[in-house]
Design a protein around this nucleic acid. Structure first.
Length: 157
DNA sequence: GCCAACGTTGGC
DNA sequence: GCCAACGTTGGC
């Protein structure tokens, strides 16, 4: 039996890799490399499935916001940037025989006409339990409830 | 720049 | 296994 598609949110610093950068990629698809947190990795490696929808969030900016939606285009495979000594996410503990870090491919689906700022999201009752809004939340790949995803898509119209 | 809230590391 | 010290994230 096919499982229900799941919903996610990924964070990125827009100065590092923005949703606009994603739009410029071939097929508007990129590998979501560089995640170096076990909990976030486990979500990508074990639970993200092709076709799942993924909110894209810009952090560490003047106005942190959810800026668009992508879709999982390829399920988890080893993050090769961990093997590149020159890469800022290099990790000597990850080898090709025994990779420690994984990534998925994300394909852009939509850039919101207006970003949905964090401060505004905090005022939405339907989102009050959202992981993103939890005080001290630092998880860079996090699950989103269907109801939350739908509320956000409604706001984006 | 500040600092709260984490996650990681390493001594014991 | 505990926990203090340290490093990082990320809003403000």
């Amino acid at each position: 039996m096919a499982k229900e598609p799941k919903f996610w949110l990924v964070k990125t610093e827009s100065t590092c890799f923005s949703v606009q950068d994603l739009a410029k990629q071939t097929k508007q698809t990129t590998c979501w490399s560089g995640v170096r947190n076990y909990q976030a990795r486990n979500f990508m490696r074990d639970e993200m499935k092709q076709g799942d929808q993924v909110l894209v969030y810009h952090s560490s900016t003047d106005e942190p916001a959810i800026v668009g939606v992508a879709r999982v285009a390829r399920e988890a495979y080893p993050d090769h940037t961990a093997w590149d000594k020159k890469d800022e996410h290099f990790d000597a503990a990850s080898t090709e025989d025994s990779p420690r870090w994984f990534m998925v491919d994300l394909q852009l689906e939509q850039i919101f006409k207006e970003p949905l700022p964090l401060a505004m999201l905090r005022s939405i009752p339907a989102l009050k339990n959202m992981e993103l809004l939890r005080k001290g939340s630092r998880l860079s790949v996090q699950p989103v409830r269907k109801s939350e995803f739908e509320a956000i898509m409604k706001l984006a119209k």
